[in-house]
């Protein structure tokens, strides 16, 4: 199939960007979205143009490195799918596709479609861990964890840190990402001693980094490739406010 792409091009963080139109031909429906961009890039190089920079690594939906806003939706319209897993069979011949980078002040554009998401690392560094030195752990069976808690903690722990939640949120809020980690650790017995401190430090760090606040709009969970539920945000709020969370 043949497609028209409008791609955000920006030489570096300080220069002004703009949308540039490209036409790509003979795209196979079996290609992934990124493979389609590979094809375009190969052509751009041979034409002496600068290929489009975009982040990616695992190309199987787990590393969280890829992420493009495709026709206005982070990771594209297919639900629970990362950009690298999105395949061209979901597009039609003749379609126009607009491709933009994540937009948020704490995610400055580095080049073209590449943004700097290190703010997420700062949030985890603020407290997204259990302080346990190596080698001092009790036997793994010393503390049983009810299956239900373990499973819910796991659901939250599957966050890949891609940042689509921020990109989608009209407030540019990192709440879903932050809440996913707070929920993961807060539900396990191992995470209890630091639970209150963790929530406070992580939430405040997110604010300081310039993310917006959550007004419970729910776009984040809709685009989240791992379907992290809004319940995690409720749990984060409860932990932050020092209230006992209810529900799962």
């Amino acid at each position: 199939m043949n497609l028209t792409l409008k791609v955000w091009r920006q030489k570096n963080a300080t220069s002004r960007g703009h949308l540039t139109t490209y036409r790509v031909k003979e795209i196979s429906p079996d290609m992934s979205f990124l493979e389609m961009l590979d094809v375009l890039n190969e052509r751009l190089i041979l034409d002496g143009d600068d290929p489009i920079a975009f982040d990616h690594d695992c190309r199987e939906g787990i590393c969280g490195m890829c992420g493009l806003v495709i026709n206005g939706v982070p990771h594209g319209e297919q639900r629970a799918t990362t950009t690298c897993q999105l395949h061209m069979r979901h597009f039609k011949d003749g379609d126009t596709i607009v491709i933009e980078p994540w937009r948020a002040a704490p995610f400055p554009v580095v080049k073209d479609l590449v943004v700097d998401r290190s703010a997420f690392d700062r949030i985890i560094e603020a407290g997204g861990y259990v302080s346990v030195p190596t080698g001092s752990a009790p036997d793994a069976h010393a503390v049983p964890v009810p299956k239900a808690s373990a499973d819910t903690a796991f659901d939250a722990a599957t966050c890949i840190g891609c940042g689509a939640c921020v990109a989608a949120c009209p407030n540019g809020s990192a709440s879903l990402f932050t809440a996913a980690k707070i929920t993961h650790l807060g539900l396990l017995p191992q995470g209890q001693p630091e639970r209150a401190r963790r929530a406070r430090a992580m939430v405040e760090t997110a604010d300081e980094l310039g993310f917006g606040g959550c007004t419970n709009i729910g776009e984040c969970t809709a685009v989240c490739p791992k379907g992290i539920p809004l319940a995690t945000i409720a749990r984060m709020n409860a932990d932050y406010l020092g209230l006992a969370a209810t529900g799962d």
Binding site: G72, E77, N171, G172, F211, G212, T215, G218
Partner: peptide, 27 residues
């Protein structure tokens, strides 16, 4: 205050933005 914080968090707008599931009420 929250509105100001939100505006600061998204200084550059998208050219195309589609809503996925947000309700009219929430907007």
């Amino acid at each position: 205050q929250l509105t100001v914080q939100a505006k600061r968090a998204r200084p550059v707008k998208y050219h195309v933005k589609r809503r996925v599931q947000q309700s009219y009420a929430s907007r």
